[in-house]
Simulated assay, not measured.
Amino acid sequence: MPESRRRPLPAYVLTYGVLPALLLLLAAAGLLKWQDGSVRNAQAPATESVRAATDGTIALLSYKPDTVETDLAAARGRLTGPFLDAYTLLTHDVVIPGAKQKKISAVATVPAAASVSSTDRHAVALLFVNQLVTIGQDAPTNTASSVRVTLDKVDGRWLISQFDPV
């Protein structure tokens, strides 16, 4: 009997084994890449708002007696809504006169911060704050506290709209 003609084994394996497996792997890799991008995009508001809360908190609570007016005026640029009004009143009536008269300086740091919730336009973060306050020539005092910072996105910037001690 004559031998029947068959495809060579390597071509058959390549056509029905390797190529479909390769296509399946590429599709899986594409899916994983898309999911990774989706997760990163979903985390972006949380990351951005925590950074804004941290930088804003440091600006709100840090000043020197010689530059207190400019320090706190710059901090007001990180605020919005009724909190901006309340902060402006407090700094104008209490903080600025006290810092100048008693030579008070304050340096705030945020050793830890985390997102509580976030959307594209609104976020809440929890911050642990250390503040070193020096009055005149006295020894500095260090206080530790935690604050719940609420932020709203206004014109593409995260601004603090509430600042609540916890």
Rank of each mutant, 00 (worst) to 15 (best):
70 T>F: 03
40 R>L: 11
138 D>Y: 04
67 T>D: 07
67 T>L: 05
4 S>G: 04
89 L>K: 15
126 L>K: 03
114 A>Y: 05
96 I>A: 02
120 D>F: 06
131 Q>H: 03
91 T>H: 04
95 V>A: 09
93 D>T: 14
25 L>K: 00
128 F>G: 07
45 P>C: 11
28 A>K: 11
45 P>K: 14
22 L>A: 15
78 R>M: 10
43 Q>N: 10
108 A>S: 01
77 G>T: 11
103 K>G: 01
106 A>P: 00
82 P>S: 14
54 T>A: 06
113 A>W: 12
91 T>L: 06
55 D>Y: 13
44 A>K: 14
144 A>D: 07
19 L>M: 10
130 N>F: 07
48 E>S: 12
6 R>S: 09
104 I>V: 15
79 L>R: 07
150 T>Q: 13
36 D>C: 01
129 V>L: 08
141 T>P: 00
148 R>E: 08
110 V>A: 05
150 T>K: 03
39 V>K: 11
163 F>L: 09
114 A>W: 06
68 V>N: 02
164 D>H: 09
80 T>L: 05
60 L>H: 08
115 S>R: 01
164 D>C: 01
44 A>H: 14
11 A>M: 10
86 A>K: 12
56 G>M: 02
155 D>Y: 06
38 S>K: 15
119 T>F: 13
86 A>P: 00
62 S>P: 02
133 V>H: 06
125 A>H: 01
104 I>R: 02
101 Q>V: 14
22 L>G: 07
11 A>P: 03
156 G>S: 10
35 Q>G: 06
139 A>R: 14
90 L>P: 02
3 E>Y: 07
56 G>T: 04
142 N>P: 00
15 T>S: 06
126 L>E: 06
57 T>S: 12
6 R>C: 03
96 I>K: 03
116 V>A: 08
136 G>D: 03
162 Q>D: 13
